[in-house]
Amino acid sequence: MWLPKIILAPTTVAMVVCMYGFILWTGALSFTKSRMLPQWDFVGFLQYDKLFANPRWDVALSNLVVFGILFICISLVIGLALAIFLDQKIKAEGLIRTIYLYPMAVSFVVTGTAWKWILNPGLGIEKLVRDFGFTDFEFRWLVDQEMAIYTIVIAAVWQSSGFVMAMFLAGLRGVDDSLVKAAKIDGASAWQSYWYVILPILRPVFFSAVVILSHIAIKSFDLVQALTGGGPGYASDLPANFMYTFAFNRAQMGIGAASAMIMLFGVLAILVPYLYSELRGSNRG
């Protein structure tokens, strides 16, 4: 039967060329001197040396660590807490869930624009708190080199924590009731049964959530672009913003390609163990 193969042919070609071929192309490019245009004088790891010697890349990487850890941990805690509370036979659960999840439907550019205004030094939250009577209150993270990255965390958590809630809630709904009842008969309190019985069952959900959130973190680009523009200076740059700036604004194709490859390896480091365990699981099932 040749028809199925014909159907898959265009996708296969697109995949081989535009995914795997392009990754190889970018990988090769990262070993050349390319600047404005691709050129194929190979220079070994020179671009990687330059990349890691670049203070801006340094900032982008450490920002990613700070942002990634905070974003993932806070989203997990809020998401799990809201899911557990919502799982207590709450009236109007549907409405509340809808409210928690709507930020996920809007673009990161919209989120960035909204929070840029809310966090506006002078007219935003600062003014609001001052109007409440705290006239000396200062809140200028958006223009503070040290604090700008945390504004990204706030906006990203606002956008994504509802989604983590939805994942955990789905997980909680899948937990076998008889287990909880058994724990109750054994004299476990509500909190004990959550801690010792339900949370261990939710481990796969945790695992998925961490993978998804770290994936979002590594790819974060539009939120930074809209909220801080990477600023002040380049204080809130993330790797994706670094890559864009060097590859497309500064005509430093080689360094841009090298930074993209590092991002790819970052994703792979998280993904390969995850996919491995997923595939093993699905083969067993």
Binding site: L8, T11, T12, M15, C18, M19, Y20, G21, F22, I23, W25, T26, L29, P38, H215, I218, K219, P239, A240, M243, Y244, A247, F248, M253, G256, A257, S259, A260, M261, M263, L264, G266, V267, L271, L275, L279
Partner: peptide, 21 residues
Amino acid sequence: LLFGALLFGCFIPFQVILLPM
């Protein structure tokens, strides 16, 4: 195998294909 290879496409950071594209 094809499906597995395609699945990987859901995950790649697009920065890695921006320049050749």
